[in-house]
Structures are given as C-alpha cells and as structure tokens.
Design a protein around this nucleic acid. Sequence first.
DNA 1: CCAGACGTTGTT
DNA 2: GTCTGG
DNA 3: CCAGACGTTGTT
DNA 4: GTCTGG
Length: 231
Amino acid sequence: MPGRFALYASAEQLADIFSVQLPEKVVPRYNISPSQQVAVIRNLGGENHLDFMKWGLVPSWADDMAIGYKLINARSETVFEKNSFKRAIRTRRCLVPISGFYEWQSSGSAKTPFYISMADNKPFALAGIWEQWKNPDGSIIETCAILTTTPNRLIETIHDRMPVILHPQEYSVWLDREVSDPATLKQLFKPYPAEVMTAFQVSTIVNSVRNDGEECIIKVDSQDDTGLLFN
DNA sequence: CCAGACGTTGTT
DNA sequence: GTCTGG
DNA sequence: CCAGACGTTGTT
DNA sequence: GTCTGG
C-alpha cells in the first residue's frame, strides 16, 4: 500500500531536503487519503517545483476520473508494463514528500493501524508518477500514484507491501526526465532499510478520512485502541 | 480483425 | 494510447 | 486505505 | 457483496 499518509514538515524543511524553489505554504496534514490533493516535487526546466495534485492516477485516455480511485498504488515490479503506468514511469516521475505513512495490520477480521516513519522523524520521499488528464470542460487535471515494493524486516511484521522510499542521493536521477531506462530505474525499487525506520500502533481515529488531527499519530499501547481517551 | 480492459489490496 | 482476449 | 451507501419522485 | 466518496 499505503492508502494513507501524513505530511507535517515546514516549508523551510522541505525546501532544504528536496531542493525546492519557492515552496508553497504546506499546511500540516496527518491523514492524507486517496482522491485528496497531495504535495509532489517535480523537476521542470531544471528546477525542482512543489505542486499539489490529486492522489489517484487518471491516465490520459480515461473516459472519466473514476478510475483514479483504483490507481493510488503502482506495483514497481510491473510498472513498466502496465498500460496505465508505462508512459508516466518513463517521463513523469515525482517525489511525494511525507512525514510517515499508515499500514493496517490484519488479524482475522481485526485491522490495526500503525504509523511508520523514519527513526529521526525527518520527512522523506516516496517514488511517485504523475499524469495529466483533460476534463471535458477543457481543464487539465493532474493526478499521481505511488510505487510499492516488498516490505523490509520492520514492515513485514505489519503488512506484505510497502511504498518505494527513495534515498536523498537518488532524488536527482528519479526526477531527471532524460532518464527513462528501465534497468536504471528498477535499481531504485528496493525496500528501504528497516534499521532507520520506526513503527508504532495508533488509534483507529485515523480510519476515518474526516479526522485529520495530530491525534492520528499518537502512539497507543497494543490491545488498547482507546489510548487517547485514557491517556 | 474488433471489443474491452487498462489496478492494487486483501480476502477467499 | 496500447495491450489482451476472442 | 476505510467508511458509508446501496434510490426515486417530487418539491424547493 | 460491491461501489463510491473522502
């Protein structure tokens, strides 16, 4: 997956880490869901830009935007082969800056949300692709999706997939529109090292997209989903 | 050739 | 637009 | 990803 | 159960 993430870094922090020119003001978000506007970083004209677009990729040939609800993730193993992604992966790649993401651990019918981030709590980048779709009214809609891969040793205890997280030294090649060679890009599709990441259980408050407060990332004890009420 | 799909996750 | 299935 | 709807007619 | 909305 993931199907939910958070971004609460300051514009200054993002400018520093992602070499973004004139970052727009980024409002802290703790529960970013599919179909919502997300921040992405693209390289346009040799400079990195921070833009906002809808999460859920709508290919140029789509009849309507509904398909975007399905295309929030792209498997890195097959992204060069799938009709919906093959054009974007070659020439329209982006970084999706986040503070952390959520994964739900299934046990029988129970689903327990976990918040996963870097141990140093710094923002990092997911590998993303983006598209343009022409609305019948003539407007251009920009959308994006994130790549997934196999989990690392930390995340495999929670879930069987994780997003492709890029190392800072990989940002420039990922954003370089001159690069389109699958072999080169596939080298980036590996699980991020578990040693520098951390995960903890959070309240099911995050289950509802209507909740976008800091309480989404408050740690709760195992077996105690009501942590917020009693802490 | 044309028609129809184009995706992932999770669950069975 | 491009691929798969029939 | 999860939550919530799943519908039409008629009226405003 | 399945689709849509967020």
